[in-house]
Nucleic acid binder design. Sequence first.
DNA 1: GCGCATCTGGCAAGCGCATTCCCGATTCGC
DNA 2: GCGAATCGGGAATGCGCTTGCCAGATGCGC
Lengths: 366, 366
Amino acid sequence: MAASTLSEVARLAGVSPATASRVLNGSARTPGAEVADKVRAAAATLGYIANAQAQALATSSTGLLGLIVHDIADPYFSTIARGVQQAARLHGKAVLLASTGGTPAEEQEAVAQFAGRRADAIIVVGTRSTRPEHAQDNAALAAGLQRYCANGGRAAVVGQPLTGAPQIDGLQTVQLPNRELATELAQTLGAMPFREFSLVAGPPGLTTSDVRLEGFQHGLSLAGREPAPVRRTSFDRAGGYAVGLQLGGELAREGGPASGSGAAAGGPVPCIVAVNDVMAIGLIAGLRESGLEVPADVAVAGFDDIETLRDFQPALTTARLPLERIGMLAAEATLSAPQDRPDLEVAGEVMLRFSTGSPVVSPAER
Amino acid sequence: MAASTLSEVARLAGVSPATASRVLNGSARTPGAEVADKVRAAAATLGYIANAQAQALATSSTGLLGLIVHDIADPYFSTIARGVQQAARLHGKAVLLASTGGTPAEEQEAVAQFAGRRADAIIVVGTRSTRPEHAQDNAALAAGLQRYCANGGRAAVVGQPLTGAPQIDGLQTVQLPNRELATELAQTLGAMPFREFSLVAGPPGLTTSDVRLEGFQHGLSLAGREPAPVRRTSFDRAGGYAVGLQLGGELAREGGPASGSGAAAGGPVPCIVAVNDVMAIGLIAGLRESGLEVPADVAVAGFDDIETLRDFQPALTTARLPLERIGMLAAEATLSAPQDRPDLEVAGEVMLRFSTGSPVVSPAER
DNA sequence: GCGCATCTGGCAAGCGCATTCCCGATTCGC
DNA sequence: GCGAATCGGGAATGCGCTTGCCAGATGCGC
């Protein structure tokens, strides 16, 4: 029993395929009520479901929205994905998902795949890379999107503009206030009585990491602080953890063998800022492993304000990005008619919490 | 500039579309090397990308894998999604994502949509519902999957078998050891010197919640414990938090005005088990809000072992489900040839951690 | 050197649907 | 009451690709 087709329905209803099509799938010309009922009845008994592939071929519109993320299991991306999904649903589109791993080569592959499926729109989420070894892949990615847009596709990239890309017509960018927020965070923290700052970042060349870093340093200087030393590690929890162990060891040695040096002395403690929450959480785990208390011995801050992490103790000081809204914006930007495209400006917010000694906020208002 | 078509490539290469098709998209009959090169060159200069829609129509195979989850931003689902995505990629399939919200009606809608798109396989993840108001939708969902499978689609459901469904040919089930693991967890905890147990569950009728509950109670009885009282709440963080506040208030009143009653007395403390990690985290937040310490005043355990939550303090005692693997299994089950389908047995593991007073495990081995 | 097997590439028929064009049947206007 | 405008429905065409089938070309054995 193969899936029933339009003409089967038409035959059962005793009408032509054209008529059946007109009643079942919205047409400007709606046939008479009697005929329409007959067709609908036939469709129901046959359990007819329109073949979206054939429709797509005939109408050259697939109703597909391609979403490209680095890792769908990462809460940063999955939250954005939720927003995209919601917007897509509102527009009656289906979401095609690609979880790439983060290299421009894989992203380019996903773009090609989506272009082949003639997705109506493509959204690329995640940090760009300026690493020299990615230059060629970046160019390929840009070329792929370029061609996709030239062929009438709509596309948006979330985060930063494409690396080394020409102006691409039809490509929109949801620019994230990474630099500004990082500056604000650093300025706020810089005004607090921390002994010194250090920064934990991803490998050089990851734009999100680099930009946040710049913003931090800028904010520190605005606060009249020295530039902070930077530790480079992987852009994930494991990287944060490794640095936590390392920094924790150094701090413990310097502050005395036992923990609680800062707390005991009541003196100013150092503050470590990681470029994202997940790294910050790993960092705290590593520091703890070294016998340090947060924030008594060392203060820690992150970036993103991941929802799942908001019950973490000590509550993490961070910069909130409205991730779900960002996803919706990106989707809306590609799906809406040009005239009612949303404003792609995104605002964030610095969240001071206990990991930097700020008073705890009730978890109720998460 | 419209996307170039196969026949354009063929014309440029001076061959017939058939030949072009044979060289560009894998065919059993590969034309001669010279012709093949010409075609490939033409395709390259035109930037040809095969129209997957048309291919799908011609071959009646779309290369689409439909994934239906309750909420893609929930780490439980996003981790499974990662597994599905990986398996799909291995098989050269693209993942179609639907994040439904969890009601059978929405799931049925997603199934219909995927069926219309002629997805090669559909995977439905998430708890079933036995609530009477869902009976009709459950039936519709079963009917939809039934028809989908009858039309040659492959499908798998992760969690429990469909509620009130007949045997559906071609529908596979990745059965999760919820009951067994819950029993094991309860038995283990029951042997420990906790004063009493109470359970925090989702609304009655959510099968995952209900089954875990049953398992817990069974384990408690195996350990010679009384059945534990059950608090019903919503199946998410907010539900856990609400019950945490409530239970926390009761315990604080009963144990004395100040916190630390159990710790101070050193006596046995109560143990609260939530049916999933996210609820357990909310629960702990609520308990803390009431001035109680975990595990000094009250022990807490969860279920799932969500990766992002593993750095939580106190480390959460839980039952680990290999979520990513589960996703891969489900995808593999639907994508592989019948003879090399994987075994759909899934094993879990009880993880004793500090939230029930067990020694802390180094975060390194997350 | 001839016939046959083998191979190579072209032709054409769909896959399931939307859409344009067209024709017969109504209905309306005068 | 007649012509014209209108409406309901059917036939045909094409979307881009795959593939079975066929004709021509090539190679082989005898």
